[in-house]
Every structure is written in structure tokens, then in C-alpha cells.
């Protein structure tokens, strides 16, 4: 871990200004991912701005019936929030499918959205990685790929987004609210928040330097039944091989997003329109153009099976 200086931000404005002003400065809140990557010197901030004490932790009702989740609300706080449990069950279930009690107590909503990928080659600093060293090459191609993405990848990166919470947010049509160093604010639809690698795998999200996520907003509850099924080798404390988030309405329509299969939560609206036709039709369309490896090709039939399981729960 390289030496860095540290400050505790006194206000939102000061925090944003502090990061904007210093090259190599970063926000830190939960830090569960950033600090881990700093230990490997995959992340090497020169200055950390601690935003943990900023007033961004509240979870509040919105006038339109939606919910505004402060960026610093911990995973635990969000999952335990009465309205999240009652009306946004897919989000509560996605959150608690991830990590562990300890990590969820520390990890924040914004930090979770911004967590970096878990490709083993991203961590193997002796080998090339286009996310770590842009242009150096992708060591995962031709390597051990069982856990990696099967769709939405590029010849430059096949890392998967490891998140669970983000998959839940994706089916809920969440939006990300930010503040920029100039004080302006903007909303980014969750579907636009995680970028596909293309030829710039190192660019993972649309945030500008110094731009800070302040909240995630949820529209009015979608109703229906909510399911999140996460498949992994051991029963807990592991990233998804495949996960599926489903919000299913009584008439058989609904929304579907997959986790563990792509560089971002994978929701294809054209595919979910086929829900009444059954899981095979949905998966066929959702994974059109997939480029799995021999090792991870099973994720596609597994996605279909996980969806079938979620639908069977929904009908039960």
C-alpha cells in the first residue's frame, strides 16, 4: 500500500472539492473493496477523503411513492429497512445474498455499486490486465475463466460484474444521483451506470473525476412477487456463478436481470417481454451474441434453470 494522506470531509461540497483538487485523490466510505485493492497496489490513491460522516445515510420516502437511499446507507441498513423488505423485496434479497454480515455492515450503497470486478487476473499483478494497465492485454482470455462473463464481453476483457445489489437495483429501474465538483447534480439510470468493456475496459462507469454518488432512488414499488436466486459452489460467502432477479406479476409478465454473467447486471428488456413464453425463450434472447468459453458455457443453461426456479417460486 502506497503512502497516502487522509482527511475526513466536513461537508459534501468540501469532499467533492477535495477530490477534484488533488490528482490521485479518492473518496472512501466503507472501503471494503478499495482498501483490499490498495493492499495489492491495484489501487494507489495518494489522498483519501473520508466521506463516511457526511449526511448521505438516510433512507427516505419520495413524494412519488418511491424511495431514496442515501449513498452511505450500509447494505445492512438498506436490507433491513421496512419498506425495502416489504415493497422492494428483490433488493433486500439481492443484498443479503452478497458477501457476509460483517461486510454488509460496512459496505455502503454507493461503494457496492462501484465495486470493481473479481476476475482473478485483475488481482494477479504480475500478469497483464486491461483494467489495471490499459492496453496491456487480457490474461483471462485463454486462462481460467469458469467464473467470468459470458455475454457483453469484448476481446479486451471478460470480467464479470460481481455485484448482487446492483442486479436487484437493475430490475427495479433505480437511478443513481450524483454531485459534480462544480456543484451540479445529475441522475444516471442504473442501466447506464455500469459500462461494457468494449475497447476501454478500464472505464467502468460514467462518473467524472471528483463526481460523488449521493443517493440511489427507486421508483414506486413495482408490485408482484420478488425473487433473487443466487447460484454458487458453496452455500454462502461466494460470488455468484449465476444469479437472477425477478419481479413477476400475476399476469405472467415481469422483469428479469441476471448477475454473474456479464460486465454489468444483465437485463435485456426484449428478453423479459418473453417471460410468458417461459425461461428458455427469455434466456435465448437475453444471451444472444454470448461468447462463453468452454469453462463457463454452462452459465447459460444455468441461467435458464435459475430463472425457471425463480418462476416456479413465483407461481407457487
Amino acid at each position: 500500500m502506497q503512502p497516502f494522506t487522509y482527511e475526513r470531509a466536513a461537508s459534501l461540497e468540501a469532499a467533492v472539492a477535495a477530490v477534484a483538487a488533488r490528482p490521485g485523490a479518492r473518496f472512501i466510505a466503507g472501503g471494503t473493496n478499495l482498501l483490499d485493492l490498495m493492499k495489492f497496489q491495484i489501487e494507489t490513491p495518494a489522498h483519501l477523503v473520508d466521506i463516511r460522516h457526511l449526511p448521505l445515510r438516510a433512507i427516505e420516502d419520495l413524494p412519488d411513492g418511491g424511495l431514496r437511499i442515501g449513498a452511505l446507507a450500509t447494505n445492512t441498513e438498506v436490507a433491513a429497512h421496512p419498506r425495502v423488505k416489504r415493497e422492494y423485496g428483490v433488493l433486500a434479497r439481492a443484498i443479503v445474498a452478497g458477501a457476509t454480515g460483517q461486510l454488509r455492515n460496512k459496505a455502503t450503497t454507493a461503494g457496492n455499486l462501484l465495486q470493481r470486478n473479481r476476475c482473478p487476473y485483475f488481482y494477479e499483478t504480475s500478469l497483464p490486465c486491461n483494467k489495471r494497465q490499459p492496453g496491456s492485454g487480457c490474461s483471462a482470455l485463454g486462462g481460467v475463466t469458469r467464473s467470468l462473463a459470458v455475454v457483453g464481453t469484448s476481446p479486451h476483457c471478460i470480467a464479470q460484474n460481481p455485484g448482487d445489489m446492483a442486479v436487484g437495483l437493475r430490475v427495479l429501474d433505480a437511478a443513481v444521483e450524483t454531485i459534480r465538483p462544480d456543484g451540479s447534480q445529475r441522475r444516471i439510470a442504473i442501466g447506464d451506470f455500469h459500462r461494457l468493456p468494449g475497447d476501454r475496459p478500464e472505464i467502468e462507469h460514467p462518473l467524472e473525476p471528483g463526481e460523488l454518488v449521493t443517493a440511489v432512488t427507486l421508483p414506486r414499488p413495482p408490485g408482484g412477487t420478488h425473487h433473487y436466486h443466487k447460484v454458487r459452489d458453496r452455500a454462502s460467502y461466494a460470488f455468484a456463478i449465476v444469479s437472477v432477479a425477478v419481479v413477476l406479476q400475476k399476469d405472467g409478465t415481469g422483469r428479469v436481470a441476471f448477475g454473474g454473467v456479464a460486465p454489468r447486471p444483465w437485463r435485456v428488456e426484449d428478453a423479459e417481454a418473453l417471460l410468458p413464453d417461459g425461461p428458455a425463450a427469455v434466456v435465448k434472447t437475453a444471451f444472444q451474441g454470448a461468447t462463453p468459453t468452454v469453462e463457463n458455457a454452462f452459465k447459460i443453461p444455468l441461467a435458464e434453470r435459475a430463472l425457471a426456479l425463480a418462476l416456479s417460486e413465483g407461481r407457487a
Binding site: 473479481r118 482473478p120 487476473y121 494477479e124 500478469l127 486462462g143 481460467v144 458453496r234 452455500a235 454462502s236
Partner: peptide, 21 residues
């Protein structure tokens, strides 16, 4: 096998049973 090492060389990558198993 290209580089000659165990890629899952930590307790995250090498899964051992947890309570839930």
C-alpha cells in the same frame, strides 16, 4: 497451465465449507 500456478490462491478463490454448508 500457461503460467504454471494456482490461480485461486486465497481464501476467496479457494472455497472451503462455510457454516451454511
Amino acid at each position: 497451465i500457461r503460467h504454471g500456478f494456482f490461480i485461486n490462491h486465497d481464501l476467496g478463490g479457494y472455497e472451503v465449507p462455510v457454516h451454511a454448508d
